[in-house]
Design a protein around this nucleic acid. Sequence first.
DNA 1: GTGGATGCAAACTCTTTGCACCTTG
DNA 2: CAAGGTGCAAAGAGTTTGCATCCAC
Lengths: 145, 145
Amino acid sequence: MNDADIRPTRQTRQKDAVLRSLAQSGRSLAPAEILALARAEVPTLNLSTVYRQLRALHEEAQVVRVDLPGQPARFEAPCGHAHARGRAAHHHHHFHCIVCDRVFPIHACPGGIEKLAPAGFRIEQHELTLRGRCADCAESAGSAA
Amino acid sequence: MNDADIRPTRQTRQKDAVLRSLAQSGRSLAPAEILALARAEVPTLNLSTVYRQLRALHEEAQVVRVDLPGQPARFEAPCGHAHARGRAAHHHHHFHCIVCDRVFPIHACPGGIEKLAPAGFRIEQHELTLRGRCADCAESAGSAA
DNA sequence: GTGGATGCAAACTCTTTGCACCTTG
DNA sequence: CAAGGTGCAAAGAGTTTGCATCCAC
């Protein structure tokens, strides 16, 4: 767990393009979407490189991986008060709008999670996905179905 | 929405084996696991058939699809007081063992979920995934890492 | 100059599909 | 007997990896 064995990752145009795409989009992107966006900057960019960069950046906590049930992984820029080279991203959950399909961070957490496990089970982590209508969609839908 | 256009699905040994495997395991199974178990009954059973049966059975609400974040789909028998041809399965969550990769049902739910949504958001559903060590793995690991 | 990063293609995992054959009703 | 189900193989998405080349440091 020493910093010494963490080799500094090089600054490349590819890495830059990936990060910039995520930062500018302001939402969660699938690797293929990132590729498309980043290619505007680096036309030769390859999908493998996107995946490799995403993994590396994720380990450095420079991007956040968003796994929603039944969906391929997406990635987003770390929100709010993430530390520069911090290793742990702020714990949060997600709200998935069933109408507009957007994903919103939920910076809250229900209590008593530890009590849910059966005897002998040891909980080390949990993930909560809320699904429903976001403010925009709940409003525009109004009383209509 | 007419029952008339729903053709009765045939009774085959394969279908039976899939259902029996799910019922007897008491937990969520990946298609490959189902294949392995069901082959004890029908040795020639094929993965494609498992997938096809799972899809059909899911449409008939005879099996429940379990999607955990970042993982391939699993399936389980409708738990508890599910009606014979009932369509709604009992609400519950899942515990995913990070050691043996098995998934167990959690028949409990943290309170106050509704309060987690930002103003204007309407929660219609939620999914909670617990991750850690199941009783077996927590025990065998003991105090060792 | 050296080692990490990249691009390309092949491999892998999970899931679906085409098709000939078999089975249920 | 006909319609639907099955097995096998091949095809498809999504993701990872081997390897020669390239480039950041």
